Amino acid sequence: MAPIKLYGNPFSTATMRASASLHEKEVEFEFVQVDMKNGEHKKEPFLSLNPFGQVPAFEDGDLKLFESRAITQYVAHEYADKGTPLISNDSKKMAILRMWIEVENHQYDQAASKLVWEQVVKPMYGMTTDPAVVEEHETKLGTVLDFYEKTLSGSKYLAGECFTLADLHHLPTINYLMSTQSKKLFESRPHVNAWVSDITARPAWSKVLSMLKR
């Protein structure tokens, strides 16, 4: 069988999300770095893997996937017997987990990714951060995190007492935001802060971060 391949850039939040799932499941894979500075993601042969020209892309035998959250869910289901159980066999628990996956994607990430762009990505490329945009999206993220604080006051993780994909999907943006002024949004909410400390200390996440230093 052909080896599992993950194509991406180690600094990409979406790539980090996909690689975190593979490390949590203790699945061996080959990481193929895509040179985004030279536009490799907008050219063939990469476009045959992701026609939208975005990282990551994923291959497992004859299966080809793109979109990081689709990749993480495939990995969690296909390799359910390995590593960390990132999903549940219980239909009600899985429904709650899927709800939180949607919350992360459509509520949390809409604000968090914009803050990463303004405070991390733009300075890297010599662009100027817009304080008004930061303020707007900090307000939006704060509202989301108020809901998280309430939820986490009653459970260790977002979807219950076990670490799942619902938590894992947050890791890349949290990693970047904790190096910006927006870290106050997490640190000022005790249960959110404890949750962040817990999930960012996971050994699998440390392996993802080690790729940034290569």
Rank of each mutant, 00 (worst) to 15 (best):
M1S: 15
A2K: 13
P3I: 01
K5W: 03
K5F: 05
L6D: 09
P10C: 09
P10G: 05
S12P: 06
S19A: 14
L22E: 05
L22P: 10
L22F: 07
E26S: 13
F29Y: 13
F29C: 12
F29N: 12
Q33F: 04
D35G: 03
K37G: 03
E40C: 04
H41K: 03
H41Y: 00
K43P: 12
E44Y: 10
E44Q: 08
P45S: 07
P45N: 09
F46G: 10
N50L: 04
N50R: 06
N50P: 12
P56K: 05
F58L: 01
E59Q: 15
D62C: 02
F66S: 10
F66Y: 15
E67I: 00
S68P: 05
I71C: 11
T72Q: 00
Y74F: 11
A76R: 03
H77D: 14
K82P: 06
G83W: 01
T84K: 08
S88P: 15
S88A: 14
N89Y: 04
I96A: 12
L97A: 01
L97M: 12
R98A: 10
M99H: 15
Y108C: 03
A112H: 09
S113C: 09
S113W: 07
S113H: 08
K114S: 08
K114E: 14
K114P: 00
K114D: 07
L115Y: 13
V116P: 05
W117G: 00
E118G: 07
Q119W: 02
Q119V: 01
K122T: 06
M124Q: 12
T129V: 02
T129H: 01
P131D: 11
V133C: 07
V134Q: 11
E135C: 00
E135L: 04
E136A: 14
L141Q: 02
T143M: 07
L145I: 08
D146W: 00
F147E: 06
K150R: 13
T151M: 04
L152W: 08
S153K: 10
G154D: 12
S155E: 05
K156V: 02
K156Y: 06
Y157C: 13
L158Y: 15
L158Q: 04
L158H: 08
A159I: 01
G160H: 06
G160W: 00
C162L: 06
T164H: 15
A166Q: 12
H170P: 13
L171W: 11
T173D: 11
M178H: 15
S179K: 15
Q181M: 05
S182Y: 02
K183T: 00
L185N: 07
L185D: 03
S188D: 14
S188E: 10
P190S: 08
V192R: 01
V192I: 06
V192K: 04
W195E: 04
T200N: 04
T200V: 10
A201I: 02
P203C: 08
P203R: 07
S206Y: 00
K207E: 12
K207A: 10
V208N: 06
L209C: 15
L209R: 11
M211C: 02
L212N: 13
